[in-house]
Each structure stands twice: as structure tokens, then as C-alpha cells.
Design a protein around this nucleic acid. Structure first.
Lengths: 343, 343
DNA sequence: TTGTAGGCGTTATCAC
DNA sequence: GTGATAACGCCTACAA
């Protein structure tokens, strides 16, 4: 296994000092005055030998591993996983920490094994993440470890959490349509019982009201679920019975369905019908024609924020309050929104 | 930080034996015969106290961390990252190992820092992964660590690697069209200079020849790149000048472009034109209408295979040969392939 | 069949 | 200013 690396003792020997002095010098220990010359010499030797401290030994001694774990439901093909992991990983790494990934199939039994790993590897903190914004209860066996709930809300509000501000997302998406001159705006909503369903709709409602437009239930078409086909069905229903000039869709897949409905109704996007989506699944949003204007969920930011707070808590003994943080989604403009057709 | 866990000494004390005995009993050490009764007692006490060995201490002592690192280019929004990480993570975890994720922006400087982390954390092996199948040279600073090249090929062939069998993918995709009765099959290829471009085309060519059909350069339309728009342009060109009844597209995004070209040419998919994609970006393939038949790249399997070989190498001292492994892509049938129109 | 002692690489404490 | 020592939790050669 991997040829042995120089240890602190090797440096000490070569520099003609004790291991203690090397440690003090390299770590710039405050209340011990090593001469500047010694520090310089030690550092030179260390650099020359390519010394890097052994994190394991340090962790064992310090009872701190500088390691975080992300426990999450199965990593799907959603952009979810990638952006979230990336935000967490990059932030952790830039602070000198490391992230280990643990996915659970959701089977409670399996999850226990993941948590075992958390203890075994002396992980200093845990990001407990979900693939979709919902309410979660964190297993009791994590008791004692700092935990941050990510992309979800803590069911009993005893843990800090970070999740998307659904209201703001619905509000901003709708405002973009209003800014473009639309006054009859439909919403293609999901039928799933999740926070996003009502959050986004309430944002939509508020944006209308703030702009002096009337909220009309008939303009909100709720689908069975949130797939493309459901979006198609819901959008078609809306286009048949109402005359919206714009559609705010619950997500990008439903927006694809709306495109199809528009096409069948001989409506051109965006000339006859503006469409705005949600999720910025760029693989979809970039690929369909015309490019889909949409809201980008703050995956990266959620991962980054949770990691930052967790590390500060562990490293600086900063308190880890059970704060709920709602992060905004960002408007991504492409080509599916334009002014309404003139009559 | 996390209340102290019971150590092997606590167990020993409570069970009235020495730490050594506990270690021997729990690890079932072969050449030391602890009495069955003792083993039983020790195990009972361990279970009762919720004992789990401290991985750090063990790693330090054994000079083996049971940890693998995946160094990869930035995790994009492609399914790439998710499936690959998942395959690696699940396999590692099922074998009692753990995976840490290190992403690099590609800046060489940054990459050095990632490698530093590999050494510091005493990682036992490294998966060096790329987002797209290409040739890579692994940094010299990884010398000494077992490395597996994943989703790429080792430029100098000195490292083991696992990557998709592009030829097989092209062959099987084309065969699916031939099986459905097509004889005039176009290919919408990428223009990028990557192994997949020629691999998939050669597979396409071989499938035609094996079936007694003639390969015709005019039926292969190479785009600038591999985005949806390029697929649209290339497919349109093909449909204008030739009369294929089926299109094999380099990837799903280009297939979306082909859908659009078909639509503009008043061709119905799949009644008038069959289309097959590549990548199984389910977010696209499921969402477009009709659902896209496509080839699924073996991301999960590549991650799993690399991890398995790496672990076996480290754990069992199995040799780690610089073998190149090409893994097949799987055909995913949806609704975009049918028999050609009868004349 | 079980126990003692030493060491993996580091750092905190305290003595010199 | 610098260094000896012990300890973090575990495993193993060797002793009993």
C-alpha cells in the first residue's frame, strides 16, 4: 500500500529538532515561542520532503475529523444531486474539509447502516438531504451529531434546515409574465401534496394581486402528478376553456407538456403563448424549442449554506440554532416569454 | 463534539476481560482460540453498549482507511455524475467502504489540492473520472496510489480503465432499427473529436453490413457539435436530401433536434420516421413526445466495477492490472421506433 | 485461552 | 525557546 509518507518525526530528525517543535512550528502554536529561524528551517525541510500531515492521526488526537457526511435518498438523474453535492463539496473543500456521500434507498434498515458509518468515521456533521422539498424526521440514532436538514424542513423544527422559498419562486415567475404585459395568466400546477404546490401557487396569487389582477381559480389547472403528460393534459384543459396568454408551469417537464398542448392548439410559443417553467433542468430547458424560461432552484446554495454553518458550528463552537432558511430561486431567461399577442 | 462512544476498553472492563480479548473476539481472529463463551459474552456487552469500532483508530493502526476517493471534473447536471457516484457509492458501501467526492474545476492548481486531500486522508484508492469519454493522463502526484480511470481511457495505457463500448452501442441501436424493418437509416452524428463519434459510427456501419445493407456516407450527417440545435440542422439536411425512414442520433439532445426537423418536414414520429437516441437522459427521453427510444450508458456499472476492482486490489492484494474494460450500453425502448411506412 | 506492551502520527501539557 | 511524555482507539507479536 502506497509507500510511506514522511512523518513529523522524519522532519524533526532532518531538521535537528524534536517532533514537538516541528508540530509547534508548522501549526504556528500561539503560546510557545519558537524562534523564527527554527520555524523557517522546519518549513524548508517539510517542503523539501513533501510533508503533509496525516489527517487520520490528527483526527484521532483532536477528536475531530474535518469530515462531513451527506446522507441522502437515492441520487436520481435529477439535477438535484449534482448541484447539491457540488455546492456542499466545493464549500467544504475550500474550508479544508471533506465530504463523504451516503445514499439510502429509503429502507429504514439501510439507513441505519449509513448512520453507523457516520459514527465509525467520526464524521463531525451531517447533511440530511432529500430529493424533493418535504418534511422529514431525522432518525434518533443521529442524536448527538450536528445535523442540517437540506432541501427539506424539519418536521418538529428542532433542527436547522434550508430549503427553497417556493412562494418567492412563484411570485417572481409570475411577475416576469406580468412585466411582459400579460394579464390573463394560467397556472399548470402539480397535484402532489408537497409544500411547493401551495407555495408556488400562493406566490402566483400574490403577484397577481400586487399587480391589480384578479386571481381566478379557473385559471389554475391541477394535474394528477407532475410529469410531462400531466402538464400536457392540464395545459390543454386550460387552453380549451380559458384564454390565457401565458402559462406558469409547476416544473419544466410540465412545461414541455404545455408546449405540446400549445402546438396542438396551433399556438406559437412565445408569440401566441408565453410559457415559464420551474427547476431549470437545463437538459430540458435548453433543448426544447424555443428555449424555456424558468426558475432555477438554489441547490448549490443550499448545499453551500448548510456546509458553511455546520463547519462554523464545529470549528468555532458557533451555536447551531434550529433556524429555518428559505433560499430564493433565480429567474433564468430564455426564449419562451414575450409580450402577449395584440388583438 | 458528539459524546464519547464506548471504546474497546469499556467493553473489556464491563465484560471482565482484556482489550485484546475483545479485539480478538470481535474480529474473529483466526489463530487465537477464544472460548465460545467469551466471544458470546463480549458480543453481548458490545451490542448492549452500542459499540462500533473507531474507523480512524483502526485506519491509523492498519494503514488502511477503507476509503476511496472519486476525483472528477465538475459535476454537471448530466446524469453522468449521479449514476456514476451512485454505482461507486453503493458498491463501496456494500463492501464496508466509504467514498469521498472531490471535484476539480479542471484548473491544474486546484487538482493538486484535491490530490493533497487524497494523501492527507489516507485514501486507499482513487477513481479518476471524467464527464465524457476521452483520453486522460493522470497527474504524477498520484503515483503510488491505486488509480482507476473511469468513463475515460488512460492515455498511456498504464492504468486500468473502464469506459462505454461505443461500438456496441452504435451497433445495437442500429440493429434495433433494422429489426423493425428499416433499410434506409441515417445517422445524425456529432462533430466533436471524441472516441464516441467514431465508435458509434463504426458500430452503425457494421450493423448495416452485417445485415446486408450498404453503408453510405451521404446518410451520415455530422453536426458542428452535439447540441439540440445542431441535431436539428443535421437532421434537416438529411431529410432534405435523402429519404431515410429512421435516424440514429448521437445523443438525446440531438434527437430532440431531429424531432423538430421531422415535425417541420411534416413527418410523424414514429409512423413516418423512427428515431433512436443515445444517453437515456431520462429527463429528456421521457419528457418529449413520443418517448424516445435510446441507449443507456453504463454509468452505474462503471462506477461499480472500478470500485470493486479497487477494493479487491487493496483488501485481497489482488493485482491491479492495467486492463481496459469496455462496458455495453443498454437499449431502452420507448415509443419512437416503429416499422417504416409502407409505400 | 488470554493478557501485556508497543506503536500507527499527531498534538496538548508541562517541564527544562 | 525547546523537548519529553502521554494520550486519542485500535491491532498484533509475543509472553504467560
Amino acid at each position: 500500500m502506497a509507500t510511506r509518507r514522511p512523518s513529523i518525526r522524519d522532519i524533526a530528525e532532518k531538521a535537528g529538532v524534536s517532533p514537538t517543535t516541528v508540530s509547534h512550528a508548522l501549526n504556528r502554536v500561539a503560546d510557545t515561542r519558537i524562534s523564527a529561524a527554527t520555524i523557517k528551517r522546519v518549513e524548508a525541510v517539510a517542503a523539501e520532503m513533501g510533508y503533509a500531515p496525516n489527517g487520520l492521526a490528527r483526527a484521532l488526537r483532536l477528536q475531530r475529523s474535518n469530515t462531513l457526511a451527506m446522507i441522502s435518498e437515492e441520487i436520481g438523474t435529477t439535477p438535484y444531486a449534482g448541484r447539491l453535492i457540488l455546492g456542499a463539496q466545493e464549500t467544504a473543500f475550500s474550508m479544508g474539509w471533506v465530504l463523504i456521500i451516503l445514499t439510502t434507498g429509503g429502507v429504514s434498515n439501510v439507513e441505519e447502516r449509513e448512520i453507523q458509518a457516520v459514527w465509525q468515521h467520526q464524521v463531525d456533521g451531517v447533511l440530511y438531504a432529500t430529493t424533493a422539498h418535504r418534511y422529514v424526521t431525522v432518525p434518533a440514532s443521529l442524536e448527538g451529531k450536528p445535523v442540517y436538514v437540506v432541501n427539506a424542513e424539519s418536521a418538529n423544527d428542532r433542527l436547522p434546515s434550508v430549503f427553497p422559498d417556493e412562494f418567492q419562486g412563484g411570485y417572481d415567475a409570475t411577475m416576469e409574465l406580468i412585466r411582459n404585459g400579460h394579464t390573463v395568466i394560467g397556472m399548470v400546477n402539480t397535484g402532489e401534496n408537497i409544500p411547493a404546490r401551495v407555495g408556488r401557487r400562493e406566490g402566483y396569487r400574490k403577484a397577481l394581486e400586487d399587480s391589480g389582477l384578479r386571481y381566478d381559480d379557473a385559471l389554475v389547472s391541477a394535474a394528477e402528478s407532475s410529469f410531462a403528460h400531466d402538464g400536457y393534459v392540464a395545459a390543454r384543459r386550460l387552453l380549451e376553456h380559458q384564454h390565457p396568454t401565458a402559462l406558469f408551469c409547476f416544473n419544466d417537464r410540465m412545461a414541455m407538456g404545455a408546449y405540446r398542448a400549445a402546438h396542438e392548439a396551433r399556438l406559437n410559443v412565445p408569440a401566441d403563448l408565453s410559457v415559464i417553467g420551474f427547476d431549470n433542468q437545463s437538459i430540458v430547458a435548453d433543448a426544447i424549442y424555443p428555449g424555456l424560461t424558468t426558475m432555477a432552484l438554489p441547490y448549490y446554495e443550499m448545499g453551500a449554506l448548510a456546509v458553511r454553518n455546520l463547519i462554523e458550528h464545529v470549528r468555532d463552537d458557533a451555536p447551531l440554532e434550529a433556524r429555518r432558511t428559505a433560499l430564493p430561486s433565480a429567474l433564468i431567461r430564455r426564449d419562451s416569454v414575450a409580450a402577449p399577442p395584440s388583438r
